[in-house]
Design a binder for these strands. Sequence first.
DNA 1: GTCTGTGAAGGGCTTCACAGCT
DNA 2: AGCTGTGAAGCCCTTCACAGAC
Lengths: 268, 268
Amino acid sequence: MGAESAKSADADPPASAVPPVDGPATDIPGPTVARLATYLHVLRSFSRRGILLASSGELATAAGVNPAILRKDLSYVGANGVRGVGYDVGRLTARISMTLHTDSIHTVALAGAGSLGRALLSHAGFGRGFRVAAMFDADPALTGAVLEPGGPRVAPLTDIAAVCAQVVPAVEIAVIATADDDAQRVFDAFVAAGVRQVLNVTPVSLPAESDVVVRQVDLALELQVLAFQASRGPRDDVKEAREAKPTRGHRGSAGHQGNVMGEESVTA
Amino acid sequence: MGAESAKSADADPPASAVPPVDGPATDIPGPTVARLATYLHVLRSFSRRGILLASSGELATAAGVNPAILRKDLSYVGANGVRGVGYDVGRLTARISMTLHTDSIHTVALAGAGSLGRALLSHAGFGRGFRVAAMFDADPALTGAVLEPGGPRVAPLTDIAAVCAQVVPAVEIAVIATADDDAQRVFDAFVAAGVRQVLNVTPVSLPAESDVVVRQVDLALELQVLAFQASRGPRDDVKEAREAKPTRGHRGSAGHQGNVMGEESVTA
DNA sequence: GTCTGTGAAGGGCTTCACAGCT
DNA sequence: AGCTGTGAAGCCCTTCACAGAC
């Protein structure tokens, strides 16, 4: 994986790179981007509850992170908290939304209309900034079906290229939720169709395409990691473990380094 | 983390046909554990194709990682590759399986029988080392239902404590796929019931309980991260949006880390 | 010669701690 | 006083490169 270090490669972007933006950071660390999305979720929750002002401590607690890193993360979006007071919920929400481009609608193509694909369709926030403009499935019986009111008709996997070419605006993100055996083919088809962001929920390891960002979410893998932890955890400190106040156990949050977050794949 | 070297953690699993353990693993980095699961998937795939021997390069390519890190990862499980040759697929599979405790059955409780919960049930490798021993849902209409042949009856969320107490062997892992508003309550109930490993697929940030390992998989978040990448990638140096030759140095985000990659294969 | 195993180097992210504003 | 913003330190993981085994 590891794309090579960006810095070495990008001597200097085309002159057009003069920050058209006022403050937002130019290069945000991957983990930070993921957390920003989390903060957005927390902020919306706060807003819903009528909270208009929040300190880094409060936000951090709600987001399950350290206050320090939250502040650092916010510094990337050109945070404007008020010292001695905290952050204006509405203002911060707007700031992060802008940075993450949550304010615009993103066009998505979904391959695989099985249980997982459908669950994604109805569950994973499609509609909150995302529009599923194309759907594909291997099952001929599903061809032409409309799985969501106002949604696209299901097309065969073999039609990915043709359908994607007609979608306007162009498909930005492809979601692969097909059977394992189809994942590679589907991926290739999407890449050929110009899609450069892919969310792969199959356990298939997709090849490191040069400039395609792939995020992989493998639920079976998550379970295995937990199973592993289950086998060793009880052994850790058999001392208290029972209701003891979390004095300092940073051990608890186990895989939080860089686990949940996906990654892109690239390897020339 | 634990200064403890819980090495002899479990000498209990039947040694079976696996050769004597020389250096199981003292303390495996989180990202490595996740990758090991990926390797397992790759190895099974190789085995299925009749490949009995593989070099680190071949495995790494299939797993989408760097050969160097693959070798380092394997060193944690007490790898026994043959220099100048490669790794014995069967032997390595056994080795990793043992390390990840994939050889034993893990008991799982699943909360939330909505589309996502059901998709998990049928899709995410339950059955391959995992047994769903309890299911819960907020919808009374589902109470008593059996969603999978041979599976457990669905119980109300309020019965988590009671049902979990009866499950034998005890529930090791809880999966939370409920509505957002129920996630926290359900989590608390599972923790109170003694569950110490939780997979949370809701976007709710669960508090860092002292000794509970929580892995969060948020698909909406993944989409947002990709949307962000989509907005910044194109501006890079790629003018021709149509048909890009991957010869060019890529410029994805510089590496992040820990990722989640595939394992298992089930969906035939 | 080939490929593994691993110490050493390198890089990025997190944590700390404090200066600075309100 | 309270809380933000941020340089600096620290840590962990990845990458490199080479010694060593076949």
